[in-house]
Amino acid sequence: MIPAAFEYARASSVEEASNLLSKFGEDAKVLAGGHSLIPLMRLRLAQPSALVDINGLKDLDHIKEDGRKLRVGALTRHVTIQNSSTVKEKLPLLAEIAGEVGDNQVRNMGTMGGVIAHADAAGDYPTLALMLDADIVTNQRTIPANEFFKDLFTTALAPDEIVTEVVFPVATGAHKYVKFRRRLFDWAIVGVAAQKMNGGWRIGLTNVGPTPVRATAVEEALHKGAQPEEAAQHASDELDPAGDLRASPEYKKHLARVLTKRAINQAEGRQ
């Protein structure tokens, strides 16, 4: 299947990329790893008027840490995140999640910034960003994750705004991402991330609504001393997931509860 025609330009700096986006107008898209965008273009679900290729912006491909924060450049590929000794040491949950995205071929191309900016409800990094209060840095400003994801495929980004970096807190405590799917390389039907941090738990849910969800009711129950099984019953509180080909809304709510229990238990080394 052949995508609709589009104008193509390679950017040699973030500033140039932003200028090109302004010039081409709001139908233009950024091309990073392309592993969400190109499939959509082939199905003609997306027909951008122009693509601004940022793959040459090597300074966006970086992983830095300063003891408190882990900064992941927007163009950092999943494979780099998955294998990074810095990520494994400072935020091992992120390395685990990166290793669960797609397959080897997808992880060689797909990027942190791409997943964040695309804001697919089934994307894995948005869940982590939201639950850990990460910051999304763009060429214009810094946006807290809880103000970034607005709706299905909809973010706070302006048409000429480009994600340059995602800043996570360092977290080295017990953690687990349980990604429930029928085949290894699939998107999550439902995913649950659990991270022990600052003496409490952070729990995030993937693909149970138009945006990622932080399961605060579960976090609070755990904080008050509830057992994982009991606390996990709150994972579906206030959820209103859309059904899709793979799962009904009821089944997704069921999965949210079951997987939350598993994520907490497995984080702590129980089955």
């Binding site: 392309g34 592993h35 190109i38 082939r42 494979v79 071929q105 997808v106 060689n108 191309m109 390389f185």
Partner: peptide
């Protein structure tokens, strides 16, 4: 649809699905 991998090639030594790259 970028799933089957039949079009896998190496680009600068990395396995890539050549149907998902321009």
């Amino acid at each position: 649809t970028s799933q089957c991998g039949a079009c896998t090639i190496l680009v600068d030594g990395k396995a890539v699905k050549s149907c998902t790259m321009f």
